[in-house]
């Protein structure tokens, strides 16, 4: 593959990873804020649960970002 194409591909992968993480975390934390707005006393419980969900949600975008980094630095698909 042409080197500039690999750079472009890596850039697109990282960009979509960031986009997906933004949307996912936005949905997650908007629901978390809704939850504590309705029931402020549940904040402690919801915080722990939302952090675990954050770890689960973050995984797929960050897999895309990690492969994007690998492509960008020419380790795979270069």
């Amino acid at each position: 593959m042409d080197m500039s194409l690999a750079v472009l591909a890596g850039g697109i992968m990282i960009a979509f990873g960031a986009l997906a993480a933004g949307i996912g975390n936005g949905v997650l934390f908007s629901r978390y804020l809704e939850g504590i707005a309705r029931q402020p006393e549940a904040q402690g419980k919801l915080f722990g649960q939302s952090m675990i969900a954050l770890g689960l949600v973050e995984a797929l975008p960050i897999i895309s970002i990690a492969f994007g980094i690998l492509v960008l630095f020419g380790i795979i698909g270069g």
Partner: peptide
Amino acid sequence: AARLWANIFA
């Protein structure tokens, strides 16, 4: 596997 690796690698 990819979940753990990608987070730490990135």
